[in-house]
């Protein structure tokens, strides 16, 4: 029972981190209709800067710089690439982001090499005990931070002028533009916010119990893709639910993998994708995604 509770809380915590990534992914999709395959590289960029800078400027400053830099890189991608591409199909835009991803990820993994970089976070490997349940401090911080960021984002999305502009642009870009919404700014800010969220997520993906940031971190980030798509690519609620589903599934499957030896080693890494397939079979638009309707 304690194992179950531990796995569940850990799953929710890592799920919240996936939700941060998926949320950024969904924001970008809503604002620019681009499926951003470069998301993993944004995450890697943010995490890499934090890991490299904390010995020089301290952890908190490094975190700030990492988040700001990831936001800047994301905004630059939007400004330099996505905005300039004049293509008929959004699939092609998705492939452009793959090109961007290849460039950034290759360069960063080259810089990282075979190192495992510590994130220099103040929580270290401390654990907290509630009754018989042992939890890593980092997991609790991750959960609280992710929850706070997500709440802040959703409130901003609902009540601020920026949020209204964003929703209007997503609803009907042309009308929004006629009403005075600056589409360029909206989409650029969407990319920047997504980049910042990804950098925060990078921090929590690389702290204890994971050894640190290494070249496979961008692959870990790929698990947020099923989170986004199983919730529905155009739904912020979907991103949250999707993140939690993926996090809990992964944690449970890894935790109990000794009881499921027939499924093979490392089933926890594959389980998120299998869950996604099952959900897509039943609901092709995802759990909360809007079904595409068209008038002919």
């Amino acid at each position: 029972m304690t194992t179950f509770v531990e796995l569940l809380v850990n799953g929710i915590s890592i799920g919240a981190v996936y939700a941060l990534i998926a949320l950024g992914f969904v924001i970008i999709f809503k604002a620019t209709e681009v499926v951003n395959f470069a998301h993993a590289s944004l995450l890697l960029a943010g995490g890499y800067l934090v890991a490299r800078l904390w010995p020089l400027v301290g952890f908190w400053a490094a975190l700030l710089i990492g988040v700001a830099a990831a936001a800047l890189v994301a905004a630059a991608i939007e400004f330099l690439v996505i905005r300039r591409a004049d293509v008929a199909s959004h699939s092609v835009l998705a492939i452009v982001t793959i090109g961007v991803d290849i460039v950034i990820t290759t360069e960063l993994t080259r810089q990282i090499g075979t190192d495992v970089l510590a994130m220099g976070d103040p929580w270290g490997s401390e654990v907290v005990r509630f009754g018989g349940v042992t939890l890593a401090e980092t997991r609790i911080v991750a959960l609280v931070t992710a929850a706070a960021l997500i709440t802040a984002f959703l409130l901003a999305f609902k009540y601020t002028g920026w949020g209204v502009a964003m929703r209007a642009a997503a609803e009907d870009a042309e009308t929004a533009a006629l009403m005075g919404v600056r589409l360029g700014r909206v989409s650029m800010s969407a990319w920047a916010v997504a980049g910042g969220l990804a950098a925060v997520a990078a921090l929590f993906l690389c702290v204890f119990p994971t050894p640190g940031l290494d070249r496979s971190t961008s692959l870990v980030a790929l698990k947020a893709f099923p989170a986004a798509i199983l919730g529905g690519l155009d739904s912020t609620t979907g991103a949250l639910v999707g993140g939690l589903v993926i996090g809990v599934t992964e944690s449970m499957m890894s935790g109990y993998q000794n009881d499921m030896v027939f499924l093979g080693r490392g089933i926890g890494d594959v389980a998120p994708f299998l869950v996604m397939l099952v959900i897509l079979l039943i609901r092709p638009a995802g759990l909360f995604g809007t079904k595409e309707l068209a008038r002919v």
Binding site: V35, F37, S89, H90, S91, A94, L222, F225, P226, A228, I229, L233, G264, G266, I267, D269, V270, F273, L274, M276, L277, L280, P284
Partner: peptide, 20 residues
């Protein structure tokens, strides 16, 4: 049933499942 980039993400499952 899926179109465009949606299918792209869904097919990630093939890669990871396949590697497994």
């Amino acid at each position: 049933r899926l179109k465009g980039a949606y299918l792209g993400i869904a097919t990630f499952a093939l890669i990871f499942g396949g590697q497994h």
